[in-house]
Amino acid sequence: MTNNIIAILAGTFLVSAGLPAAAFADTVSGGQGNGESARGVLDEMPDLSSRSIVDLKPPRIKTDEASRDFSMPTEEELQKAFSTRSRSGDGATTPPSEELKEIIRGLVNGDGADAGDSREPAADPILDEASRQVIGEDDRVQITETKKYPFNVIGQIWSQTKAGDWGICTGTLIGKRAVLTAAHCLYNHDAGGWLAKYEFFPGLNGQNDAPYGRYSFVDAYILEGYITNYQGVYGSVVPWDLGILILDKPAGEEIGWLGYATYDPPYPFTANIIGYPGDKPQSTMWQASCDVDPGTASQNNFSYLCDTYPGSSGSAVYHYDGKTQERYIVGVNIAETEKENIALRLNGPYFNWVRSIAQE
């Protein structure tokens, strides 16, 4: 989806929580690891070039699908949609926490209003220091120093289908074991639900250079709304395309992780998207940056003009705070229309859901 920018879901149901203008209302800070190889990653590097790859990208969203809302007028329906579906335990479902229920109750009642924000966009200086390569008119640049923070906490997710093929996405460590990504990288409606297997390669730098090895998984989580609200087309579940993969070993203890924050209310910022686009040499890391106009934000999503491509699905969209010199994920790259790319926005309820899983 190079040069396709994301359209937002206009007219969505959620109402903002009315957060302070000058600071993130809710944040989880990131942390740098020691940069050494993570403990317990002793298996041999698989031959990635020999794997049969299928496309895990979601279908391109039509303009009318981009304006789809939740269509859930009651508190009970939203609570069900914000329940957590776990891959383990035969798809066990966990209801939202009391804190999340309270947020949902406020949304239904229309509590709060956007307070606005005066923050100015800031470029992440690490991107100027990194070894990068620009090719042609494409404004994406290759990251080759993938062992440098924050690039080392970003990795490629390989998801195996039940037929034995593989699909590729991008994920980001947001805790010791938790990897933030898109739900469609973990669950496929047309292929029978949960994919059979997941592998995570942090800092992967081409097919034969995995500086931190390969991690398997112990569980995966998505929102119940991504499953039960499916109406035969991807556009029906765009508002719920959020997932978390739980690794079998605590990679973040050695590598580190990125922080995340509520992007609520919206403010102007420079979006940084780092991932593994499928139109580039296999398993190479690429970065794109572009300014985000808060006026493009719906209550669930925001759009931008950054160059992306399938394989970058699940990439974190992070903001660099020039004052604090901290990085915070505020969205997840999930989809495209004919003109735009779209990120799921970490508003109040999404942030709460992510934190409840990632902190475990």
Rank of each mutant, 00 (worst) to 15 (best):
G322L: 03
G167I: 11
L204N: 01
A123R: 12
F151L: 08
W166R: 02
P150Q: 06
P150N: 05
N333R: 08
P125L: 07
D307P: 02
P266E: 08
L344S: 07
E199L: 13
A178D: 05
N341M: 09
I174H: 05
L100F: 01
T337C: 10
T27I: 14
F70E: 10
R132V: 15
F200E: 04
Q79V: 02
D190C: 00
S83W: 03
G40L: 11
E129L: 14
D165R: 09
W353M: 08
Y187S: 09
N301Q: 13
N109E: 15
I6K: 10
G295H: 06
G192K: 06
T161D: 08
F82T: 01
A271T: 07
S283F: 14
G110C: 10
G232C: 07
T12D: 14
G167N: 06
I174M: 07
E137N: 15
F82Q: 00
Y267N: 01
E336G: 12
C306A: 14
E75K: 13
R355P: 01
G235Q: 04
W166L: 04
E65P: 03
L245G: 04
E253S: 13
G243F: 10
E76G: 01
G314H: 03
E340A: 13
D219L: 08
P211R: 07
R140N: 09
Q156M: 13
D111A: 13
T144Y: 01
K62A: 13
D248T: 09
A122D: 14
G164N: 10
A17P: 00
P58N: 09
L204Y: 00
P277A: 10
G232W: 04
L100P: 02
P96H: 08
C185D: 02
N205S: 14
Y260H: 12
D248Y: 03
V317M: 14
D165G: 00
R119P: 01
M72V: 01
V54K: 07
T228V: 11
Y212D: 06
Q287R: 05
I357H: 08
S159H: 02
D26A: 14
A81G: 02
Q359H: 10
M285W: 06
A25F: 11
T172A: 14
S356M: 07
D114T: 08
